[in-house]
Design a binder for these strands. Structure first.
Lengths: 298, 298
DNA sequence: TCATGATTATTGTCCTAGACAAAAATGATT
DNA sequence: AATCATTTTTGTCTAGGACAATAATCATGA
C-alpha cells in the first residue's frame, strides 16, 4: 500500500529520462541498476523512485562524471554528489529566490509582473544573462531535488514565454543584420532557449526568424535558402545526448553552404569538449552578442 | 557518383522520421523496406532517398493508412496516394489563399501583419473560428500534399503564435470566471490549439491558466488543486491516436474531483464517436464559448 | 614537470531473432 | 445497421552478443 506508486515501462522511462532503452538494459546487466520489476510478459516496469534516481544520474553524467561511479548509488549519495557539482552555484540572489517562492505559491500574475519589472529595470540583455539564466538553473535544481513539481515548472516556463514573446514582438527588425534563423533539431523540444537567443540577437540588431522546435535538417537547409539567412542558431537543452548533438551539428554543417554560419548554444553544448570545424559553440548568452558584433564589423 | 549522397545510421533515421529503431528493423524483415546498405560492422546505413520515402510513409500512416498498404511503395505511388488523401472542402476563401501565398513566399512580416489586420477587423472570436480554423485546415492539407514544406508550416505556426500570445496577454483576467486550466496530455506536443482555446475562453470572460504541453495526469490534478480551477481544457491534434485520447481522458476524469469540468477539443476529438461520461467534447471553437456562457449562467 | 603517444578499460549503440499484446480488419449474428 | 467474436496486423519489448568511440591510465621523451 505504501509503495504502489506508478510503474513505467522502458519506453516511457527513455522519454522521461533521456536515457536510451539499450543503455537502460545494459546498465541493469553491468551495474545491477536500475532493477525494475517485471509484469506477466517479462516486460520491465520501473518504479517511480528509480526514475527519480535515473534523472539525478543523468544530470551527474551530463556534468562529467562516469557511469561506473554513479549508476549504482542511492538517493542520498546522488544528492551529496550533486551538491558538490561545480555547476550548482549556491549563491542565488535573493531576488531569484523570491521568484522561486512565487512559483511555489502559484502566483501566476504576480510572477509575470515581477519578471516584466526586472526586465525593464535591468534591460533585456542583463535580464536574460543575469536573471533568467541563473533562474533557469535554480528552477532546474529545484525540480531535480523534488522541491517543485512538473506543473510548477511548466507554469514558470509559460510566464517567461509570455514575457519574452511580448518583448521580441516589439523589437523585431526585418531589415537588421545578420539575418538569423533560429530552431532546434528533431528530438529537442524545448523552445525557451530559442526565445532567449532570439531576444538577445534581436536586441543586438539582428533580423531573426524563429522556426519553432524540431525542424528536420534538410528543412533547415530549405529555410536558409528561402530567407537568405547568414546564420543558423540552434539551441540544445541539457536532456539532449552529446552524441546526438554532435551528429546533428556535423550533418547540418555539411548540408549548409559554407558561407552560412552555424551557432550552437544552450546547456547541451556547454558540456561539449572540442568545437567542431565550422561550428561556433556559444556558452553564455553574451557569446551571442559578441558574435553578432563580430559579424556586423565584418 | 550521382547517388552517393549521405548515408544515415538507424539512430539518425529514427530522429529524422519519427519511426522507432525497432519498427524500422521489423519493417525491413516484413515488407522488405527500407533496404539499407551495410558498413563493415554490419550496421544499417540508409540512403537519403529511402529516408525521404520513409517521411512520406509516416505522413500517410498519420493520415490513417495502414503500413501493409504503403510501406513497400515507390515514390510515385506514395505521391499518388498522398494526392488522393481525404481533402477537405476546396472552397477556401480567397483571403485564406492569399495567406497561404504569403507562407509559400516566406513573407514573414507581411503574414503577421495580415493576421493582425484580419483579427482587428473580424474581432478575436470570428478571427479564430472563421479565419484561423479553416486556415489551419488549409495549411494541413497543403502540407499533406507536399505543396508546402515542414519549415513553411513551422513559419506559419510561429507567426500565429506571436499574434495570439500578444492578444491573450492583453485580455488576461485573473478574476474572471470560470477558472480554466489549459494543457495537453503527454504525447501531444502541439500547443497551437491551446492558444486558440485560451484566446476564445479569455475573450468570453474566463480566467485562464496556460500550462504548456505534455503535462502528466497527476500533475494536472495538482495544478487544479493549486489554482482551484473550475474547468480543465485539453487539446488534441489529429496525430494523436484516438485510443490514447480516450484512455487519457478517462484516467484524468477519474483522478479529478467530480465538480471539476473536463473539456476536450481539437482535431483529435473530432473523430471520436460517443462522448465519455463526465467529459464534454468540443467540436468547433464556438462550443467553447457556449460552454463558458452556460457555466456563467450557473 | 609537463606534454605527447600508446595501451587498456569503459560505455553507448547497434546487431539478430523471437515473443506478445493492443489495435484494426474481418466475419458472424442479432 | 449495430454489436460481438475471431483473425490479422503491427509496434514494442525481450535476451545476449559484438563492436567502435571515448575516456582513463601508463609509458615515454622533451
Amino acid at each position: 500500500m505504501e509503495n504502489d506508486k506508478a510503474l513505467f515501462n522502458i519506453g516511457i522511462v527513455e522519454r522521461e529520462t533521456g536515457i536510451g532503452k539499450d543503455t537502460l538494459r545494459v546498465w541493469e546487466k553491468r551495474y545491477g541498476f536500475p532493477s525494475p520489476v517485471r509484469n506477466e510478459g517479462e516486460d520491465r516496469l520501473y518504479p517511480e523512485q528509480q526514475v527519480v534516481q535515473l534523472r539525478l544520474i543523468k544530470r551527474l553524467l551530463d556534468s562529467g562524471l562516469r557511469p561506473s561511479k554513479v549508476v549504482g548509488l542511492e538517493l542520498d549519495a546522488l544528492n551529496a554528489l550533486l551538491a558538490e557539482t561545480p555547476q550548482t552555484v549556491p549563491g542565488y540572489a535573493p531576488e531569484l529566490l523570491e521568484l522561486l517562492q512565487m512559483v511555489k505559491r502559484h502566483q501566476v500574475a504576480e510572477l509575470r509582473l515581477a519578471l516584466n519589472k526586472i526586465m525593464f529595470r535591468q534591460g533585456l540583455h542583463d535580464f536574460l544573462s543575469k536573471t533568467i539564466s541563473p533562474m533557469n538553473n535554480l528552477i532546474g535544481d529545484a525540480w531535480l531535488r523534488g522541491e517543485i513539481r512538473v506543473f510548477e515548472e511548466h507554469l514558470y516556463s509559460e510566464q517567461l514565454t509570455m514575457v519574452l514573446r511580448n518583448a521580441i514582438s516589439m523589437i523585431r527588425d526585418a531589415n537588421g543584420s545578420p539575418r538569423v534563423l533560429l530552431t532546434t533539431l528533431p528530438g529537442e523540444e524545448h523552445g525557451l532557449g530559442l526565445l532567449m537567443a532570439d531576444a538577445t540577437l534581436s536586441v543586438c540588431g539582428a533580423s531573426c526568424v524563429l522556426l519553432g522546435v524540431q525542424t528536420p535538417i534538410n528543412e533547415i537547409v530549405w529555410a536558409v535558402k528561402a530567407h537568405k539567412s547568414d546564420v543558423v542558431t540552434l539551441s540544445f537543452s541539457s536532456v539532449m545526448p552529446v552524441a546526438q548533438i554532435k551528429a546533428g551539428l556535423e550533418q547540418l554543417r555539411q548540408a549548409l553552404p559554407d558561407n552560412v554560419l552555424l551557432w550552437a548554444g544552450g546547456a547541451g553544448v556547454a558540456r561539449m569538449r572540442k568545437p567542431e570545424a565550422g561550428i561556433q559553440l556559444m556558452g553564455p548568452l553574451a557569446d551571442l552578442s559578441a558574435a553578432v558584433s563580430a559579424w556586423q564589423a565584418h
